[in-house]
Amino acid sequence: MAQTLPTLPRDTAALSAYDLWKSYGDRPVVQGVSFTLNPGEVLGLLGPNGAGKTTTVGMLYGLVTPSRGFVRMGTFDVKSDGRRARDRMGIVTQEDNLDPDFTVIDNLIFFAHHYRLRGAAARRRAGELLAELELEDYAQYAVEQLSGGLKRRVVLARALINQPQVVFLDEPTTGLDPDARQEFWKLVIRLRKMGCGVLLTTHYMDEAQRLCDRLILLQQGKMIDQGTPPELIERTVGTEVVELEGVAEDQLQQVAATYQTWCRSFGNGYVLSLSGDRAPQIWDALVALQPEQITRRSANLEDVFLRLTGRMLE
């Protein structure tokens, strides 16, 4: 007997961006960006400063009006129905714009009011969030008394008040120390487990590699590639690279040309891709150049970016 497979709804994406363009005067800032964000997925938007990440995020929640294209949050058009779209979004902006006149818990309670959560319901939700984000001990603290990491956590708690389906994190860990960054990463992973779609912009490659299920690379407002981190690394640089110092550039270029591999300057030395079956031969050829230093390591997103954009992320 033929079995009927259940049919998925045609559009299961939590958030969809269609052909987004933004220009200021004659200067294009975002050019033709399209993507979908699924529930329970962390999507990374990567790019150097000025690549159009924040402008793109602004278009996603309605702060920036696209010159062309549109954004849908579920079935709501962000431009024409921004209020209902934002009702389902949690937005963590780059800056900590908490209310300095309120305590931590009051920041949450009074923000809940904008979602029509009041009185006991608002206090209950604020309490839940403080517990979830391990902020209970700081409930009565003034915002100024908090460290940078704790402030970011309170901003995230504020964004989660209405149990959003999609959370935007715009460079959420910039300026945080390594411990605070790792604590924040745990929260992002927890959001994903809860089924939230998370859109993360960052210029920390390690952060993107650890957290993101899928990545979009932006350069000068254009999407230059997209895929999972391993896909992007494999496709762009291969699995391994060599870093080396103290070798003549023309000799190195000759090796790169012979084995048709990618090579470019990197810090005080060079980086070269060890791609394909000929990796052992390439390695031997490089060792034969007798460099002062030579290191073989796994390729990472930094290398991808270096290759695709020709520059390091700042």
Binding site: R83, M89, T93, D99, P100, H114, Y115, R158
Partner: peptide
């Protein structure tokens, strides 16, 4: 300074 307007615009407010 406080960027309150920016924060409010992340809520379902216009």
């Amino acid at each position: 300074f406080q960027r309150t307007w920016h924060a409010l615009l992340t809520a379902p407010l216009t």
